[in-house]
């Protein structure tokens, strides 16, 4: 029995290793679709997808939109500002109104942790979480894993260290869940004030110094330092952060072997990462962006398939 997905993609916490592998394997052939002259296949023809973004996003929203369009789905983008949300409509009412217009899927980014699950439980359409508060950003976790698999050749046994603001990062959470399920060794590194308390109990190594992380890891996933964190007093200053935790060429040169460098974007050059590292030969930051479209196509395709109980009736034999 091959793995299938549930109605919604809320987080990697809720997926099995088999389901994660299914998504990553399905993403492979979708990479090629984006390399074609005609970058479009009819797999989701006639499906209507709403991209419901309550928080600002450029990369993720565009990436989802490309994925949807390359699968021939019809898409509508709704941003919170300028919509009925700003007039006080609740999330469920917004979604129910969209459903009344006969949509098939909702891709949602929301500031509240748990918003995707909440919505998925209340509407019939598939819900894909494009980031909910500090909870998860599953497609980012998946594209990071696909990029590691491409670069290193496997995920199991690879040492991946997430550097930066772990506590407030949904990207970190999705990475932690996904990578540990596929057997990677995972560590985190950052100022104590930005590491969740008791994280070691989840089998995750915690480094207080970035030099230690660099010595240990095969892959560094450098997270964006959200500037609002500084205002709230989690770190003394951006310069101080760069001096202590910045991923710089000088630090990487001391590593026993070259490290693969990842960053989910948007980057703050000169804060969490040195420009020479971001643009260097071991950076796969733009490969992550490319893989993002393929992973999202895979998720959309798998969720759209829906009714495997009819498979036997339809197959009718032969190789067809």
């Amino acid at each position: 029995m091959t793995a299938t997905l549930e109605k919604d993609l809320v987080g990697l916490e809720f997926l099995s290793a088999e389901q994660i592998r299914l998504i990553l394997d399905t993403a492979e052939p979708f990479k090629e679709v984006s390399e074609r002259q005609i970058k479009k296949v009819p797999a989701l023809r006639g499906k209507t997808i709403v991209n419901l973004f309550f928080e600002a996003s450029t990369r993720t929203r565009i990436s989802f939109e490309f994925a949807e369009k390359r699968l021939s789905a019809d898409t509508v983008n709704v941003a919170a500002s300028g919509s009925s949300v700003s007039k006080g409509e609740t999330l469920v009412d917004t979604a129910k109104n969209l459903e009344a217009m006969r949509i098939d899927m909702v891709v949602m980014r929301h500031g509240a942790s748990g918003a995707a699950q909440f919505l998925g439980n209340r509407i019939r359409s598939n819900v894909i979480n494009a980031g909910d508060g500090k909870h998860e950003h599953p497609t980012q976790g998946l594209l990071d894993m696909l990029t590691i698999r491409d670069k290193v050749g496997r995920i199991e046994g690879v040492k991946v260290c997430l550097v930066g603001d772990i506590m407030h990062s949904r990207v970190a959470r999705s990475n932690l869940w996904g990578l540990t399920k596929l057997g990677a060794e995972v560590a985190v590194c950052g100022p104590r004030s930005l590491l969740p308390r008791g994280i070691e109990q989840l089998g995750v190594r915690a480094f207080g110094r970035v030099e230690e992380a660099i010595e240990w890891a095969d892959v560094l996933n450098v997270l964006r330092l959200q500037l609002e964190r500084m205002e709230k007093g989690f770190i003394p200053s951006l310069r101080e952060y760069y001096r202590v935790f910045g991923v710089t060429t000088e630090r990487l040169e001391r590593a026993p072997k070259p490290l693969t460098i990842m960053h989910p974007g948007p980057m703050n050059r000169g804060v969490e990462i040195d420009s020479r590292v971001a643009d260097g030969p071991h950076s796969v930051i733009l490969d992550q962006v490319t893989n993002g479209v393929a992973v999202r196509m895979a998720v959309l395709y798998l969720l759209a398939g829906g009714r495997p109980e009819l498979a036997d009736a339809a197959k009718g034999g032969g190789s067809e």
């Binding site: 052939p29 398939g305 009714r307 498979a311 339809a314």
Partner: peptide, 12 residues
């Protein structure tokens, strides 16, 4: 697609 569900692995 609706009828047979997604195929486990799509070839190249």
């Amino acid at each position: 697609l609706e009828l047979v569900g997604p195929k486990p692995v799509i070839g190249a």
